[in-house]
Amino acid sequence: MDGYIIATVIKAVLVLSIIAALAGFGTYLERKVLAFMQRRLGPMHVGPYGLLQLAADGIKLFTKEDFIPSGANRLIFMIAPMITAATAFIALAAVPLLPEFKLFGVTVKPIISDLDIGILFVLGMMAAGLYGPLLAGMAQNNKWGLLGAARTAAVFLSYEVVTGLSILAPIMIVGSLSLIDFNNYQAGGMGEWLIWKQPLAFVLFLIAGFAETNRTPFDLIENESEIIAGYATEYSGMRWGMFFIGEYANMITIGFLASLVFLGGFNDWGFLPGGLAIILKVSFFFFFMLWVRASWPHIRPDQLMWLCWKVLMPLAVINVTITGFVMMV
């Protein structure tokens, strides 16, 4: 039991530090990829190819004044970014990141906690992340923040529905909520991947994922051109940084979920070992999010709601229904 606790703590620390670092690195990648797609160079001057820009930004964020507006609710204003960051990392606790491997004769399961209701937990935690922007926006005594908060509530609540309904069909097929089970269900090679059985669910999940992670084209809650920075308007320094660590962590989580649920998880993929395969898949999703940002414009809030309630949700319901019929037959 002691070993289990120690292993869990070690795993938690590793996940936290690695994913946090990756989230930071994600900002660098984002800038680079966006720059390349616009035929620019992106950050170039700090370190080789601008790699240390990350460190520079970190130093900047840490040393900036921690600014709290005079009319703000200080406590909530200070807690809100932590909620975002914390929930993002907590969600990762139930996600198997790599296949099992042996280290010094010990079998390591690269999952902090293999919950039976893993997927539910992940989605739940991500949904709880909604409180971050919501509270932040409402606590900061700023009209842009308040608008951001309102949009947060609307977008996140709506798209929770789509996420849930879209992933319901794969759950029905697999018959388990554990992500390990999802992985194992698709162990039979590329042909077994759930994406072939549930293409619509995959698309819906992905679309909802963009909204959940507040990415273009659904980044309405901090839309610069309309509401300055939305819920983050009054934030500065590391508190502001925590929102972004949370966002990038969520992007990674969504990448993992999509890979595990639809794209065969960490099973070996042809000649590729499972560990490498899942890293490649997650990387692709990450890259895809940046790619989309470089390519597509924002949509309006009303279009977003229209898309959710009039297109995506009906489609998801139909998908679930059809899946049910097929399984019954």
């Binding site: 990829v33 720059a35 390349f36 470089a294």
Partner: peptide, 19 residues
């Protein structure tokens, strides 16, 4: 998506970086 990807390829591999 195609357009942006094409531009990236051009920029990275075909020497059409504008910066």
């Amino acid at each position: 998506l195609k357009v942006t990807f094409r531009e990236m390829i051009k920029a990275l591999f075909m020497g059409e970086m504008h910066t």
